[in-house]
Amino acid sequence: MEAIIAVLLILMIAGSIYTLHARDLLSAIVSYGIVGFALVIIFLFLKAPDLAIVQLVVEIITLIIMIAVIRNSSKEDLQERTTVKVEGVHYINLRSALYLLVTGILCIGLFYYFVKSIPGLEPFGVHTTRMATTYIEQGAELTGSANLVTGILFDFRGYDTLGEATILLTAVIGILTILRIKGKKV
């Protein structure tokens, strides 16, 4: 099972790299769907059916909203050229080289510290529940809910859910405010 998840993760990485390098925005958004739908399958393998249902529908709605945004806009991507041609001679674009250098240093540094910290984690498949022991053993008796995720979401950790609902309301009010004002025509 670990091998299947690894293959799906490699597919996700390939899809995300293509998403960032695609020539036009529509194919970028469609290949972004690869990442989300592969994530749905991985959630099913990891025994998280609640997450799989939510992720599936959210992915579809995200794609609809993104396509609605770029439908009437310019669809071509703005690629940074790696070389500049001046009077027949190719020069390296310093700015793009600088960005690549910074990204490379950042990625290598972060990756080094991540690999260094992996022995502190438990290996995949082994997990000692600390906080969740009470939730698993007595959750059904204390909340009466057969689905433990729902029991945690609305009983043990109701504050989290209340905060989530508030953030959702705030985000919607923000979207309505941003989209309502008339932009100055340039």
């Binding site: 609640d50 249902i53 939510v54 579809i60 709605i61 009466g144 689905n147 995720v149 979401l153």
Partner: peptide, 16 residues
């Protein structure tokens, strides 16, 4: 509270 799902999943399906 019985099967996979709940308010978040059902809400997104209704919106869909």
């Amino acid at each position: 509270h019985l099967t996979p799902g709940g308010g978040f999943a059902g809400g997104t399906i209704i919106a869909g």
